[in-house]
């Protein structure tokens, strides 16, 4: 019998892995840079987010848990901003 907390972790992390997988497939299979960027953003934000969420109940201390959230927030921020930057550059036809 798996404890409920572990089950939660497993589900969240499993979902995170799935999003990484999906992001990669998108990065490889999508036809052009803009759509690939789309796939990447999903993996960045949701993949890591779900992994962090899954690890959250396993953190030893409040500080460790806080760090997990900060890591996610930083990646979220960076991912969103760079996606916009790249998208803008692509729209102007630069490579």
């Amino acid at each position: 019998m798996i404890p409920l907390v572990d089950l939660f972790s497993l589900c969240a992390i499993g979902a995170g892995v799935f999003f990484f997988f999906a992001g990669t497939v998108g990065l490889l299979r999508f036809p052009d840079s803009l759509t690939r960027l789309h796939a990447l953003a999903k993996a960045d934000n949701l993949g890591l987010g779900l992994v962090a969420l899954g690890l959250l109940p396993r953190a030893d201390s409040a500080l460790a848990a806080f760090k997990l959230i900060v890591i996610w927030a930083l990646v979220l921020l960076s991912g969103a901003s760079t996606a916009q930057l790249i998208g803008r550059a692509l729209r102007r036809g630069r490579k």
């Binding site: 930083l74 921020l77 960076s78 901003s81 760079t82 930057l85």
Partner: peptide
Amino acid sequence: YGATVFLAQMLAPV
């Protein structure tokens, strides 16, 4: 770009 400035303003202090 706006996004660069926004990112820097958020990221640099943190």
